[in-house]
Amino acid sequence: MNLESPSQQLWKRFCKNKVGVWALVIIIFLTLIAAATLLLSWLGLPWPMNPNTTDLSQKLLPPSQLHWLGTDHLGRDVFSRMLHGAPISLTVGFTTVLVSLSIGVVIGSIAGYCGGKVDQCLMRLVDAFLCFPTFFLILTAVALLGPSLINIVVVIGLVSWTETARLVRGEFLTLREAEYVHAATILGQDSLKIITRHILPNAAAVILITAVLGIPEAILAEAGLSFLGFGVQPPQATWGNIIADGKTYLLEAWWLILFPGFAIFITALAFYLVGDSLREAGEKK
């Protein structure tokens, strides 16, 4: 009767939740803006202004017709800086999740497939990671390694794979008993093939959901690092470091705090809502 593939069904159920769909629209919109900004500045046409042009005569101006979101302490246009910060946040979000997913999937697969002692040891490692104050660990490592985009992505990824590993392992423990996996084992397929052909595709939904929920975590962590001075370094604008630069002028220039923070907030919120909506769509069977 039902010829739709599982992913089509998931998508259909996802579309029923209006909140999730709107959140997805926001994410797509943000991604397009980020891409357009990158493209324009690569073509040498930074829009609406060059984010790094300083003009001390124009410093700390409130939002106006010319500077939509005001200017900072060096007279740079906040709106332009925010546009140029968008690709950074999204890149951090997506690439970090790639790192943490790969680690999590590999470790979770090994634990779930091997079971026994190997599983025990790996799960103790996961337990140990759960005892760490994650953000503090990230901060320490990034501060010691030196803050750069690569370091931030790798460190956040290295610290946040535990959830994925646990979920993948859980899926493995249930799927390992499934008929078709038995069948494949009996037919003599080798382990790696069984994992990649039969088990991982079935765990895909769970992996997708953790991935989506991991993106805002990474974005928020990067913003926090930026705020403490260990994010992507100036002059590159990021949402976090606009706020970090602006905190000295808190009482005079509220726009330096309000707008970039709002951007972080909306982006993170949109990803969380999409993730949650996906989770719900995956649950209803």
Binding site: A223, G261, Y272
Partner: peptide, 15 residues
């Protein structure tokens, strides 16, 4: 609750 999770702590503190 998602609003609460997504709020950057430093931002809301400053506000």
């Amino acid at each position: 609750s998602f609003l609460f999770i997504a709020l950057p702590g430093f931002w809301i503190s400053y506000l």
